[in-house]
């Protein structure tokens, strides 16, 4: 992946949030932005997403990453987030997971702490 794009971590975080927002809008939920990294996405009673929404969120996020940076990541497969028990729990962990996947593709600049988000 020598020609891999080099998105800043803040851009990736924004991309994750945008995809999440789109799914939440379908459900008729429009949370105030920015959602904090600690936002629970799934696994508890107050989680933002149900299992179907999580599937749609992953699919949307894969497309968005492809559209914006031409990066093909597989969030559903064994190499993706599904294997990690904690990765999908909060917005922060999923963002870190995506950053990790992009880093594996050789292309993220900055660190998670530079995302500039709460």
């Amino acid at each position: 992946m020598s020609n891999a794009p080099n998105p800043a971590s803040a851009e990736v975080a924004e991309c994750v949030r945008r995809s999440l927002h789109q799914i939440l809008e379908v459900k008729g939920r429009r949370p105030a932005f920015p959602l904090p990294d600690s936002t629970v996405l799934i696994g508890t009673s107050d989680a933002l997403l149900d299992s179907l929404s999580l599937v749609m969120f992953f699919a949307e996020l894969e497309q968005e990453l492809q559209r914006r940076w031409g990066v093909s990541v597989d969030l559903f497969a064994g190499t993706g987030l599904e294997d990690n028990d904690n990765a999908a729990e909060t917005l922060g962990t999923i963002t870190d997971g995506i950053l990790g996947l992009l880093s594996d593709h050789g292309g993220v600049s900055g660190t998670a702490t530079e995302r500039g988000l709460p």
């Binding site: 299992s51 179907l52 599937v55 749609m56 992953f58 699919a59 559903f76």
Partner: peptide, 8 residues
């Protein structure tokens, strides 16, 4: 993936 994961 949507089909197999969520029958969409």
């Amino acid at each position: 993936k949507l089909w197999y994961q969520g029958k969409m």
